[in-house]
Structures are given as structure tokens and as C-alpha cells.
């Protein structure tokens, strides 16, 4: 009776696993092309100001959106298959290799989800950046700024670099302050520990007297028990002799 059930579970598991591996391969390929599309979108965005202002952003946006929806649906499908494999593994019974493979598949799904989210965030940032800075007068502005404001631009760029250094210094100072706070809390903890140890040392005589009292009580209990046993034994002997 068990053999057909086990065979059915086994075949279902293998089929699900095969499908999961196929989707994982597809996801890997699509994520790579998605990342390349993001890089191309950046170049297209910068190029659209000079060469052609109409079609490349729209075309890139369309293919980018369709690719994103494809990857999203594949991730959802892989999640469903992982859940099905989980249920198969639970019903089939405890098997270590099955559990390990299931954990491996779950890790792969988690990795793909994280990577997709990161690339999507990057592409969103780049697209917003390009959209914010694009204008119909890009070429005129570029010509004007590159032609006539060279020394002033250099000075401003240098000052921006100094400001960037100041920001980095602020970050380092924040880390140092956080470290100092943690060290302070550690010192407080050690002070508490020292106080507790001192209190425990003060309590040692009381503990010693307590132990002595326990020992005396235990010996008294032993004596009482011995007396009771002796009395019962004596009573049994007397009863036997009189009978």
C-alpha cells in the first residue's frame, strides 16, 4: 500500500525540482540582461541629449518595463514551486538530502529576489536622475557653460570636492561617536558586574552558615531515619519470636 504513495511523492518531487531548476536558469539569464539593459539605459539617457531626444528613452523604458514584469512573474512562480516542494517534503517524511536541497532552493530564491530588488532600485534612480536633468535646451546650456565659464567652474568643482571631504569626515566622526557610546556602555556593564561580585562576596559568610545549617539538618534527618528503621526491625523480630 505504501509503495504507490511513495512513488507518487517521489515523482512529484522530482518533477517540481526539475521545473524549479529550469526557472532558476531562466532567472539567471534574465537578470543578467536586465543589468545590461540598465547600463545601456544610462548610456542612452546621457546620449539622448545630444543625438536624438525622442525615441531612445521611450524604447528603453518599454523594454525595461516588460523585462521587469517578466522577472517578477518568474520570481512569483518560483516561490509557488518552492512552497509546493515544501509541502511535498513535509508529507513525504524526514529525509536529510531532501531538506538540504529544499534549503538550497530557498537560498537561491532569496538571492535572486535581493539582486532583482537592487537592480530595480538602481534603474529607478538612474531614470529619475535622467528625467530630472533632461531638457529641450540641453545642447545650448552645454555649449554656454563649456565655452565661457571655465575658471569659475573649476573653482566650484574644487569647492564641491572639499564639501565631499567634509561629508566623509562627518561619517568617520559619527562612527567614532558610536564606538565611544558602546565603550561607555561596556564600562557601565563592568561596573555593575564589579558591584554584583562585591555584594556576592559580602554574602559569603551567610552562605557558609546556610550550608552548615543544611548539613546539620541533613545529618539529623539521617539519624531519625536510622532510628525508625531500627525500631521497625526490632518490632518484627519480637513479633516473630512471640508467634
Amino acid at each position: 500500500m505504501r509503495d504507490p504513495n511513495l512513488e507518487l511523492q517521489e515523482s512529484g518531487w522530482e518533477e517540481l525540482r526539475k521545473e524549479a531548476r529550469k526557472i532558476e536558469g531562466d532567472l539567471d539569464v534574465k537578470l543578467s540582461s536586465y543589468a545590461k539593459l540598465g547600463a545601456r539605459f544610462t548610456q542612452g539617457g546621457s546620449g539622448s541629449g545630444y543625438v536624438d531626444s525622442g525615441s531612445p528613452p521611450i524604447g528603453s523604458s518599454r523594454s525595461w518595463k516588460s523585462m521587469e514584469m517578466e522577472i517578477q512573474s518568474l520570481l512569483e512562480k518560483l516561490l509557488d514551486i518552492n512552497d509546493s516542494m515544501s509541502r511535498c517534503a513535509a508529507s513525504a517524511g524526514p529525509a536529510t538530502s531532501v531538506t538540504q536541497k529544499l534549503a538550497r532552493h530557498r537560498d537561491i530564491l532569496h538571492e535572486f529576489t535581493q539582486e532583482f530588488r537592487r537592480i530595480k532600485g538602481n534603474i529607478n534612480s538612474m531614470r529619475e536622475h535622467a528625467e530630472l536633468l533632461s531638457s529641450v535646451r540641453d545642447d545650448i546650456t552645454d555649449f554656454k557653460t563649456s565655452g565661457s565659464m571655465s575658471p569659475r567652474m573649476q573653482l566650484l568643482r574644487e569647492r564641491a570636492a572639499i564639501h565631499g571631504s567634509i561629508s566623509h569626515i562627518d561619517d568617520v566622526i559619527s562612527q567614532a561617536q558610536a564606538t565611544r557610546a558602546v565603550l561607555g556602555s561596556q564600562r557601565t556593564l563592568f561596573t555593575d558586574v564589579q558591584g554584583k561580585v562585591k555584594v556576592l562576596g559580602d554574602k559569603f559568610p551567610m552562605i557558609r552558615s546556610l550550608l552548615g545549617s543544611i548539613r546539620r539538618r541533613r545529618s539529623r534527618d539521617t539519624l531519625i531515619l536510622s532510628a525508625v528503621i531500627a525500631a521497625c526491625t526490632l518490632f518484627l523480630i519480637i513479633y516473630w519470636l512471640s508467634k
Binding site: 529607478n124 536622475h129 530630472l132 536633468l133 535646451r137 546650456t141 557653460t145 564641491a160 565631499g164
Partner: peptide, 21 residues
């Protein structure tokens, strides 16, 4: 157009992060 010029000039000196963008 003026808005875009101002933002572009500032961004050429200090690149804006995604939150500001």
C-alpha cells in the same frame, strides 16, 4: 527651463543622490 538649468548646474558640481533626485 530655468529650473532645469539650475539643477543641472548644481548636479555637475555635486551629484544628487536618489532621494534628492
Amino acid at each position: 527651463a530655468k529650473f532645469t538649468d539650475v539643477v543641472k548646474e548644481f548636479d555637475s558640481m555635486t551629484p544628487l543622490d536618489s532621494w534628492k533626485t
